[in-house]
Write a protein that binds this DNA or RNA. Structure first.
Length: 585
RNA sequence: GCGCCCGUAGCUCAGCUGGAUAGAGCAUCGGCCUUCUAAGCCGAAUGUCGCAGGUUCGAAUCCUGCCGGGCGCGCCA
């Protein structure tokens, strides 16, 4: 249960009754009513602005209306107290029993707790990584990969039908460069001395196996052939090899896309031409000349008429070119076709995860989607800022085995998949992120991965201790549901339960806002609440989870501990991080 | 020059789509520590939320204009 939306529903029900009674006007609009957590816990468990929002249109005084609503809410069993405060807030305190019910709910649901109906099975497409298939993934890709993957899992958890997609940019000049680079390695594999890899080609050794496999397959067939003959063949082999490489890299991060979409296939199927015809028919294309870009002027700038899309009519700053001077389509043109294709495949909501250096591109794609879908298609681009690799605050000097960048694989091998995934979510996607290879392995409170994992491990360990204390006792989840939870009365115990009960709302909020980082922050806060209770028991032994001579109390507390363990596991599950039962190495 | 993102405690950052006295970790200061499992624990202090206007019952949050930082700016993807 999302406690907040449940009470919002209750309040809306009361508003309807008040309208029927004539206490509120017929046209009362409750859309701005919200139920939230009071900043100060002493104000209660829940707080609503209903009276303040509704009073003015109804011609009532906020506090008077608040009194009326507050009085009505007192009738609910779950409401312990209902008070008016400040300018007209209604503060609700819910009964201990209500919170204990949430505990039972968690134990019954297991790690499915927090899964919701928000999405109502609506289709959402999350496109992420989409790195050019020209080499291994590097650290920068890792962030977008995690953000996209966890966002997808989060949306799935919230009830959306999610497709994880990778767009393969296999139609541009970059893959031709790849093909030429692979061709060199092919000649090398045939025994030629190829010397230094020329400037402009990919020097990475990861292309050597491609050259070797070409020799194994085709022998010296291409050795003296013209480029026009070998390029398409070798390009295809090389791109496939690079995609295998990328899939492997993503695999070590625990990521598997549902769908790889090829730009080349799209272009060859005529999708771009179709889009152009559509735009043409709508009068959105023309041949014109753009102003030279301000700031840095490209060396080879010359004025030239181009086929332009009227992006400025859809919110972009200027119109955008669709055709290169050699007559081929620009990347933007095929990108329009790609997004229209996604839309037509049944995805009105499209989320793209890009690097921040593509920020200048958002408006034109959004404009294109608007033009092509008549405002029906919705695009949200999540831009991921840079990741700075550090070692104890200093720029990291990791060994770089593959060319001149740190690969995703190097990073995962250095600190592990779980650490990479968690740390990548410790910042909003649009803020730069410092990834300190030393700090993320520290066992301390300022290492969030450790802190959260430690909470989970501690739950596991406490359960073992309880079992040792009461060897014959039944502490299975099924049994814990039957425990007498009214014995959980300490303020910190109840605070912990409230924190647990906030999980469904966290999932919904994060899913709605497309902000997966909120999960990491929630788990950190939850872990803190759990550790705090643990620490408190050092001062007050009566609060220990395991009470040697009181099996029933221990059972109730085990229910709480099991619930903490469950919610942490649920959260880590969405993040793709494996919860650990032990931290010993 | 234009566009996008950012500006919150000494530092690194949250702030739940407009709510009440703006939060956490680190650092600082003062106590405690022969422990159910190992991160030590408890407490204190710390703010013109970049600046100035505006919108409203109410603004860190929305609008406008400045200041400062990052990224980008026709045939690269």
């Amino acid at each position: 249960m999302n406690v907040f939306s449940a009470f919002k529903a209750n309040i809306e029900k009361e508003i309807k009754i008040m309208i029927a009674n004539g206490d509120l006007p017929d046209d009362t609009n409750s859309s701005r009513v919200s139920v939230e957590l009071p900043r100060d816990p002493s104000h209660g468990d829940l707080s609503t602005n209903a009276a303040m929002v509704l009073a003015k249109p109804a011609g009532l005084k906020p506090r008077d209306l608040a009194e009326t609503i507050a009085e009505r809410l007192k009738a609910y069993d779950s409401v312990e107290s209902s008070e008016v405060a400040g300018p007209g807030f209604i503060n609700l305190r819910l009964s201990d029993n209500f919170w204990c019910q949430r505990l039972i709910e968690i134990l019954q649901a297991g790690t499915d707790y927090g899964s919701g109906e928000l999405g109502q099975n609506r289709a959402v497409n999350v496109e992420y990584v989409s790195a050019n298939p020209t080499g291994p993934l590097h650290v920068g890709h890792a962030r977008g990969a995690v953000v996209g993957d966890v966002l997808a899992s989060l949306l799935a958890k919230a009830g959306f039908a999610v497709t994880r997609e990778y767009y393969i940019n296999d139609a541009g000049g970059q893959v031709d460069v790849l093909a030429r680079s692979a061709y060199l390695r092919y000649r090398e594999a045939l025994g030629e001395d190829i010397g230094e890899i020329p400037e402009g080609l990919y020097p990475g050794e990861y292309l050597k196996p491609v050259g070797e496999s070409l020799v194994a397959r085709d022998g010296d067939k291409w050795q003296n052939a013209d480029e026009v003959d070998w390029l398409p063949e070798i390009r295809e082999v090389a791109v496939d090899a690079m995609l295998d490489l990328i899939r492997d890299d993503l695999g070590v991060l625990g990521i598997a896309h549902d769908l790889f979409s090829s730009e080349r296939a799209l272009v060859e199927a005529g999708a771009v031409d179709t889009v152009m015809k559509t735009l043409e028919a709508d009068g959105l294309l023309y041949v014109g000349t753009l102003e030279p870009p301000k700031g840095k002027l490209p060396d080879d700038w010359e004025e030239r008429p181009q086929t332009l899309f009227k992006a400025s009519e859809f919110g972009d700053d200027t119109d955008r070119p669709l055709m290169k001077s050699d007559g081929s389509w620009t990347y933007f043109a095929s990108d329009l076709a790609y997004h229209q294709d996604k839309y037509q495949r049944g995805f009105p909501v499209m989320i793209d995860v890009w690097g921040a250096d593509h920020g200048g591109y958002v408006k034109r794609v959004a404009a294109g989607i608007k033009a092509l879908t008549g405002d029906e298609g919705e695009l949200d681009v999540k831009l991921c800022q840079m990741v700075r690799l550090l070692e104890n605050g200093e720029p990291a000097k990791m060994s770089k085995r593959s060319g001149n960048f740190v690969t995703l694989r190097d990073l995962v091998e250095a600190v592990g998949k779980d650490v990479v995934r968690f740390i990548m979510l410790t910042r909003k996607n649009d803020a730069p992120l410092d990834f300190d290879l030393v700090k993320v392995r520290e066992q301390s409170r300022d290492n969030p991965v450790f802190y959260v994992q430690y909470a989970h491990a501690r739950c596991h360990s406490v359960a073992n201790m309880a079992q040792d204390a009461f060897p014959g006792a039944d502490f299975t989840t099924k049994s814990l549901i039957e425990a007498d939870l009214s014995q959980l009365t300490d303020s910190d115990e109840l605070a912990l339960i409230r924190a647990l009960a906030a999980w469904p709302r966290t999932v919904e909020g994060a899913a709605e806002a497309h902000e997966p980082h909120r999960l990491a922050f929630y788990l950190y806060d939850l872990a803190a609440a759990f550790h705090a209770l643990w620490s408190k028991a050092r001062e007050e032994p009566g609060l220990r989870f395991v009470i040697a001579d009181d099996q029933e109390l221990t059972r109730a507390r085990m229910a709480l501990v099991r619930a903490v363990q469950t919610v942490i596991a649920s959260g880590l599950g969405v993040m793709g991080v494996t919860p650990v039962d032990e931290l010993r190495e």
